[in-house]
């Protein structure tokens, strides 16, 4: 019995253990596990903050007064306003919490769009080749040549005319990010596909008589997507950074429509000169921790998927397994 489980481990494991993050967690060891766990904790904290923002935040994101009267401006952290207030009289803590919601919305929309389109185009272009490949490469290169922030600026002018409403701002950021990311997925997947096309296992599949589509979407796709978790999380974080960049340049979302970390940092710039640190540091740290979490997860998953980069478990454990 022990020998059968040993041989057919991949197919016999229950679904739960084959889910991406959980299987990675089980595979990990030592330092890598530490990084993965820290990343997961940060990411989960980010998602929870976004989901529970109405419960956590003591005030609304555009609230400037309550029953006790107007909020003070540039009040130092402490007391009722644990992270202080801005020059406009917003509560920094509440705005930072609400900012997580905006961030999640943009990331989800942007990354889903770009993955579906980019991966498909990359596989087709890389495997089939020919004129289709050339045309797509030229197009992708052209779009890729854009510094992503500039493209995002142009797109947000197009989508919202530079005006900033809640959904206008979110969609502007998300769509401009999508346009920027499609070529990235495309390039990575195409390059991998071109490389894999020459591998013996593709040739063997051809000899067996597998159809082109089957080879593309079973054999090549499975192997070409090794780098996807890394790009996925990197892009999730880049989406967030682009959103913050747009907000920083004044193309984000109005402070009365939603809370956005980049916009708050823009306002904090002049505060910093006079030594008012809390308006900038808290939203900034929120961005850093979120991106850090997403990136740690992506990095670890990427390393774990690659046997050459995977940290081995202690020999004792492996020895025990082999003996069993």
């Amino acid at each position: 019995m022990s020998t059968t489980t040993h041989v057919s481990v991949p197919s016999k494991r229950s679904l739960i253990y084959r889910l991406p993050v959980i299987s990675h967690l089980r595979m990990s060891a030592g330092l890598q596990r530490g990084m993965l766990v820290v990343g997961l904790v940060l990411t989960v904290a980010f998602l929870l903050t976004a989901a529970l923002a109405p419960l956590i935040a003591p005030f609304g994101f555009s609230q400037m007064a309550d029953a006790d009267g107007d909020f003070p401006t540039q009040a130092a952290p402490g007391g009722k306003f644990i992270w202080g207030t801005t020059v406009g009289g917003f509560d920094v803590f509440s705005r930072t919490i609400w900012g997580a919601q905006t961030a999640v919305a943009v990331i989800v929309v942007a990354v889903l769009f770009s993955i579906f389109i980019g991966v498909f185009l990359g596989l087709v272009s890389g495997y089939i080749g020919g004129w289709l490949d050339r045309v797509l490469v030229v197009l992708a290169d052209a779009v890729y040549a854009f510094p992503s922030l500039l493209l995002a600026i142009v797109m947000s002018i197009v989508i919202s005319g530079g005006q900033s409403s809640l959904w206008g701002g979110i969609m502007a950021a998300a769509i401009s990010i999508t346009v920027v990311f499609i070529p990235q997925y495309f390039r990575v997947i195409r390059a991998e596909t071109v490389r894999l096309k020459a591998e013996p296992f593709v040739e063997s599949a051809k000899v067996i008589g597998a159809s082109t589509w089957r080879i593309m979407f079973k054999h090549v796709f499975r192997n070409a997507t090794r780098t996807l978790p890394l790009i996925f999380t990197l892009n999730a974080s880049e989406a967030l950074l682009t959103l913050a960049g747009l907000g920083f340049l004044g193309f984000g979302i109005e402070p009365t429509k939603a809370s956005e970390w980049g916009f708050d940092l823009n306002r904090a710039l002049s505060d910093a000169t006079s030594g008012v640190w809390w308006t900038g540091v808290f939203p900034g740290v929120a961005i850093v921790l979120t991106v850090l979490g997403l990136t740690l997860v992506g990095e670890s998953m990427n390393d774990l998927a690659d046997p050459r980069l995977r940290t081995r478990r202690k020999a004792k454990r492996r020895g025990g397994k082999a003996a069993a």
Binding site: S237, A244, F248, G262, L265, A272, G275, G284, I287, V288
Partner: peptide, 15 residues
């Protein structure tokens, strides 16, 4: 380094 937006890094350096 990657996770810190340049404008936040700049803000911290300025501070």
């Amino acid at each position: 380094c990657y996770a810190t937006p340049v404008f936040f890094a700049g803000l911290l350096l300025k501070l």
